[in-house]
Design a binder for these strands. Structure first.
Lengths: 192, 192
DNA sequence: TCGATTGTCTAGCGATGCTAGGATCAATTC
DNA sequence: GAATTGATCCTAGCATCGCTAGACAATCGA
């Protein structure tokens, strides 16, 4: 059995290598630069090897997205735990979210802009995605206010952050004034 | 001179045809289906003709975006003018915005998701884009609240709508509950 | 009527995602 | 220890993409 185990281990290792390399390449030069040829060359295998791990480029994007979702959940919880009151917590969360999007644009794109073939907001949604949403809900639910369903509130708050993140990075919003925008959003949207 | 005028007219007409066809094709089958070959075939000219009107596919997307921006501005002002009070106006605006995005997904993508080679939020931003933002500002500025710059408020409100629009259409948010989301957004964000 | 200009097309380049089919190497069996 | 089997990987190629060079034809000014 040991031989098969070793092979399985090596295979899993190579899969991690593919995902990590795709992510690295995407962060360095954008997702357009992540071609199957370039990716294959970087991992020092031929192109078809990629297709023995993933159905296609879409699934590779999806794998990067899942990895990113897990990291985002960690970052959100870390930001929330370092705050004292609800107001602080929500503000810290918002900043951490925008910071994550700005620092990991390729991962953020894989998560929320590109088609990674993942199911969102459904029962069969992969666990990391559910958990990332849960991490938001943990901090935002408490400021939903009376008569507002925490899930609904989280969706709206999240959408607002997403809008700010994407419009800013796409050059649709001037990059300065990020802080006052966050202040406005938190002060108005959260029921404190 | 009449001959030249006729030629210029025909040329302009063909350019409109290209943009309209690109838009139609994009709405029917998505922007991925808008290839230069298919587009050329539909307008019944050869591929290189496209390049005598536009620098490339990007510019065609940009042209569709400008057309869409003008329509959006009209739709926003129409929605705003039919409302009685500020609360009504902002709510109507929000609904009209999301409705526009849902009904014209390809145009919306050209405007805010794809790269159409346009400058946003700058001095050299094309007029239709500035005007679309102005249309939002006209209705939203009055509910910015004390001490909040109307432009900043409009940016945040717009970003929230944009987040809702894109996340919903990309399947990241369940399509139902649109109305309660709008209600929540309007009630909380607008200073009434 | 003739040369020049403008307009359009055919053909092709490099690159993309993806796949078929053959070669190679290791594990298994006699 | 040799032969067979099976998994693993690579070379080569397909159709399609955005874009362009160069040939050809129609039109214009003299």
């Amino acid at each position: 059995m040991s031989v098969q185990e070793r092979k399985a281990r090596e295979r899993a290792e190579r899969e991690r290598l593919i995902v990590a390399t795709a992510r690295e390449l995407a962060e360095q030069q954008g997702w357009d630069a992540v071609t199957t040829r370039r990716l294959a060359e970087r991992i020092e295998y031929s192109q078809p090897v990629l297709y023995s791990h993933f159905r296609g480029k879409r699934e590779i994007i999806g794998a990067v997205a899942l990895e990113g979702a897990a990291e985002m959940a960690v970052a959100m919880r870390a930001a929330a735990s370092g705050a004292s009151g609800p107001r602080d917590r929500v503000a810290a969360l918002a900043r951490a979210y925008l910071d994550f999007a700005a620092r990991n644009p390729a991962v953020y794109d894989a998560l929320f802009q590109l088609d990674g073939g993942l199911a969102y907001a459904r029962e069969d949604t992969p666990e990391p995605l559910k958990d990332a949403f849960a991490a938001l809900l943990e901090s935002l639910g408490e400021v939903a206010g009376d008569g507002v369903e925490p899930g609904l509130f989280t969706e709206v708050f999240w959408a607002s952050l997403h809008g700010l993140a994407t419009l800013t990075r796409a050059g649709r919003l001037p990059p300065e004034d990020i802080e006052p925008r966050v202040e406005l959003l938190v002060d108005r949207l959260a029921a404190l």
